[in-house]
C-alpha cells in the first residue's frame, strides 16, 4: 500500500476538497486553526508583555540620588570619622536611612587622584561581603562588620574576613561652606571609581566583567 502522505498533492484542487480553487495550498481548516492560535497568542501577549515589563521596569530605570547636606565643612578633620545619617531610599522612613562616615581628604594616606569630589571622604557602612552595616571603631582605627567578621582599615580597604573589595564611597562637594554627600560609587583595590555594585561582587581582575554595572544606578560621568 502506498504512503498516503507521499501521494497527496499540495494543491487542494488535486485532493478534491469541496470548494477548492485553483492554486490553493492551505485548506480552510488549517487556515482557521492557525489563525485561532495566532489570535490566542496575540491576546495572551497583550497582557503578559506589559505585565512583565511592569515588573522588570525598575531594572532599567535610573534611580535619582540627590545631594544631601551633612554639615559644615569645619566639622570634619583628617584624623577620625564622624558618622552622619543620609537617606538612600525615600518613602520608607527609618528603613531608607543609612550612615556614612565622613572625614577630610588626607594627602599623606589617600593616594587616589584629587578632584572636586573628594575634598571630603564619605565611606558607606555597607559591608562588601553581603551588605550588613559596618561600624567604625576609633580605638582600632578599623571598620568592623558584625555579621561574618569583615574588617577594613582606616581607608576602608579590606584588612581581613570575607569582603571582596573596599567599602563603597559617596561623592562629596562643598557648597557655601556646607558639605554635601551625593551619589554612591564602588571602588576596587586602587580606590578607582566604578558604578555602584552590590556587596559580594568583586571589582578586581575579571570581577568588573563578571558583575557588570547596572542601568539603575550609575557613578557620575567622567569621574
Amino acid at each position: 500500500m502506498p504512503d498516503r502522505h507521499q501521494t497527496k498533492s499540495k494543491y487542494t484542487t488535486d485532493r478534491r476538497i469541496p470548494g477548492a480553487f485553483e492554486g490553493e495550498t492551505v485548506t480552510r481548516r488549517r487556515f482557521m486553526t492557525a489563525s485561532a492560535h495566532t489570535y490566542g497568542g496575540v491576546a495572551t501577549m497583550m497582557f503578559v508583555l506589559p505585565s512583565l515589563a511592569f515588573a522588570l521596569g525598575p531594572i532599567f530605570e535610573e534611580q535619582d540620588q540627590p545631594w544631601q547636606d551633612v554639615g559644615a565643612a569645619d566639622e570634619f578633620d583628617e584624623k577620625s570619622y564622624i558618622p552622619k545619617t543620609i537617606t538612600i531610599a525615600s518613602g520608607v522612613g527609618e528603613a531608607g536611612k543609612s550612615t556614612v562616615y565622613m572625614r577630610r581628604f588626607d594627602p599623606k594616606i589617600d593616594k587616589e587622584p584629587k578632584d572636586e569630589y573628594n575634598d571630603f571622604i564619605a565611606v558607606s557602612t555597607r559591608c562588601m561581603h553581603l551588605g550588613c552595616p559596618v561600624r567604625y571603631v576609633p580605638a582600632a582605627e578599623r571598620f568592623i562588620c558584625p555579621c561574618h567578621g569583615g574588617v577594613y582599615n582606616f581607608r576602608g580597604e579590606v584588612d581581613g574576613g570575607p569582603p571582596v573589595r573596599p567599602l563603597d564611597r559617596f561623592y562629596t562637594r562643598v557648597r557655601g561652606g556646607r558639605v554635601e554627600v551625593g551619589p554612591r560609587f564602588s571602588v576596587n583595590r586602587e580606590i578607582k571609581r566604578f558604578s555602584p555594585r552590590d556587596p559580594g561582587q568583586a571589582l578586581d581582575g575579571i570581577g568588573q566583567y563578571l558583575y557588570p554595572a547596572r542601568p539603575s544606578i550609575r557613578k557620575l560621568p567622567n569621574t
Partner: peptide, 23 residues
C-alpha cells in the same frame, strides 16, 4: 547578586531597584 552576569540584575529585580526601597 553574586551570580555572575545575571546576579546584579536579579537583585535589582528582587529589590525593585538598586536600593531596598518603598516597593
Amino acid at each position: 547578586g553574586t551570580g555572575p552576569f545575571v546576579g546584579p540584575y536579579l537583585s535589582d529585580f528582587l529589590r525593585a531597584g538598586p536600593e531596598f526601597g518603598a516597593t
